[in-house]
Design a protein around this nucleic acid. Sequence first.
DNA 1: CTGATTCACGGGTACGTTAACGAATATATT
DNA 2: AATATATTCGTTAACGTACCCGTGAATCAG
Lengths: 353, 353
Amino acid sequence: MKKRVNELTGVKEIARRANVSIATVDRVLHNRKGVSKQTKEKILSIIEELNYEPNLLAQRLASRKILRLATLIPEISKETSFWDAPLKGIEQADKEIKQFGIIIDKYFYDQNKIESFVEQTKIILESNPDGILLAPSFIEESVRFTDKCRELNIPYVLIDSDLPNGGSLSYIGPNLYHSGYLAAHLVSYLVKNGEKILIVNISREIDNHHHLLKKEEGFRAYFDKHKKSDNILKIDIRDTDLKSIEKYLSNTFNENKDIRIVFVTNSRVSKVAHFIESSKKDVILIGYDFLKENIEYMDKGIIDFLVCQKPKQQGYRGLISLYQHLAFSSPVEKIYFMPIDILTKENSAFYRN
Amino acid sequence: MKKRVNELTGVKEIARRANVSIATVDRVLHNRKGVSKQTKEKILSIIEELNYEPNLLAQRLASRKILRLATLIPEISKETSFWDAPLKGIEQADKEIKQFGIIIDKYFYDQNKIESFVEQTKIILESNPDGILLAPSFIEESVRFTDKCRELNIPYVLIDSDLPNGGSLSYIGPNLYHSGYLAAHLVSYLVKNGEKILIVNISREIDNHHHLLKKEEGFRAYFDKHKKSDNILKIDIRDTDLKSIEKYLSNTFNENKDIRIVFVTNSRVSKVAHFIESSKKDVILIGYDFLKENIEYMDKGIIDFLVCQKPKQQGYRGLISLYQHLAFSSPVEKIYFMPIDILTKENSAFYRN
DNA sequence: CTGATTCACGGGTACGTTAACGAATATATT
DNA sequence: AATATATTCGTTAACGTACCCGTGAATCAG
């Protein structure tokens, strides 16, 4: 199946029609100077007329530009493997666009150490990248960092959580409030009169905690709206080790005998599941994120629902957006909310993160 | 940010190291004949050593090949707008790969007329395409068609439903059985003792019906496994107009007073919703597919859950798979089950089809 | 009027790959 | 031995765009 492709397209054709060289057309296309107003207009009208679209392949091939992108996300800790997924997405994007002249440098910080975050941002700025992908766990420091980026004219994309200062090229991540709202909607089907609902926040860092509160807010908003908010309990657990968690839970359950639904506001739900399993409570358990340990408890029937927001996609999309913006200055959605996926024992096998 | 790229890569470098011309390297890369065993092995080892990956940009740019793909899916009918989504996916893929020298011809058939299907397959075969994307509504005829394709060495990808004869390059679509199973799992949370569950199959064509049965089978299997299958009713409706459907439903509800859950096995759930709404029944309604009319009823609270399987993605992925297989002979997943998405009023706004 | 500077533009090479064409050598046939 | 046929390989021109470098003309300073 070999054939000659359209001959009346491309810079060559434009040049021919305008009676100029392709170099001049190129100048017009890239808005460079050195073209008289007359010729420029003529060429522009021909471009319009031909409905010219540059050949992306040839464009990238000919461009000697190298784009350097930096990514900054939490390192994968023993506490939670959550950040494994975005990293996978980053690696996939890396693989796909590497040959297009993109170099991706990956940086990581410790979610429990603000200093490590600040340190990495400094290193990144020194490396002077063309674009940045950031998971801004620490709000204040992230705001400072991104403000600096804007000063330096370095576009950045945020994933996982947004920042109040605006100015990002794009935010790609969950709508936390709505994911809580959705969870409440699910719960509303499951809870019966008189039964109690327990909200569990588990997080050591205040900043992360802030995100959890958004979910809790959405969750409560649902019940407020539907006028049945009177039976909601809540505990905040500031230690992330299993023992502390189980102690807290144990106390709470002892004091409240009719807890029927437990809503854990982040991926640590597997630790709660461990408690539920060993203490043989009969409750419905809802939590967050498609993690191995969570799936295991779901398969066992301990966790009933997981809410998930495609963390891998977040990393992947974030980089692709940066790339397209920098390489083709193609428009980027300012806010891209991830779908809010509901996982159960019966559909998790088909899930694509 | 301009820079010289890696000089020690590419066919040129391979040729240099092997003391041959790039043409010979090219021959080896494409497994063409005309290379002595010795040189071939030498070149192969160098390729291995260099970990050579061809530059896709240059590859596509230099290739004068034009690939012609054909797609055959149902036309969009007034009865259901379901096929709008896969078409959108096809169009998106078209847009993306058009400039890579791919031409996509779209064919459509009437889901209620087998002849129209057969006719289109003939036209397609006459056009002798390089690859085919097929939604095989009519099983027997599709088997015949795809058998023919294999004879002619034309790779084809199936979407939406699979065929028994095997031999497709890939199947991209739902696992019907499991989507029914999942629905049952959801229902199991919602149904209380003594309440009845009603399964509703609505379809005129026998072939489509076959697909519905798969879902029903999965649905029932769940309750069989959990030993509570005694309260399941079912009706088959062979007319797709609103009036007939409402009559059937009305009768069924009159005869069974304690129906609490209604499970509609396809996207016609909005018609059932219309009945439920006007007759003011208090039931939980579960159905299929992210269609405008369905979403509307979900927003109103009439439909509780929709199960959905990314129909747009199916069209998109199908074409991309064909393209990658034909252009780069890259491996393709033989079976790609779509995720089984659960939609409710609260997450549908974020859904990406 | 001369030399310098700026402007407007064209020539040409490069990006990494494909593939048509044909040259050189080896092997088979008579 | 002469010719025919295969086998193995190199040269070279594309593909469509980017961009360096150079040239001639116009403009300006003195």
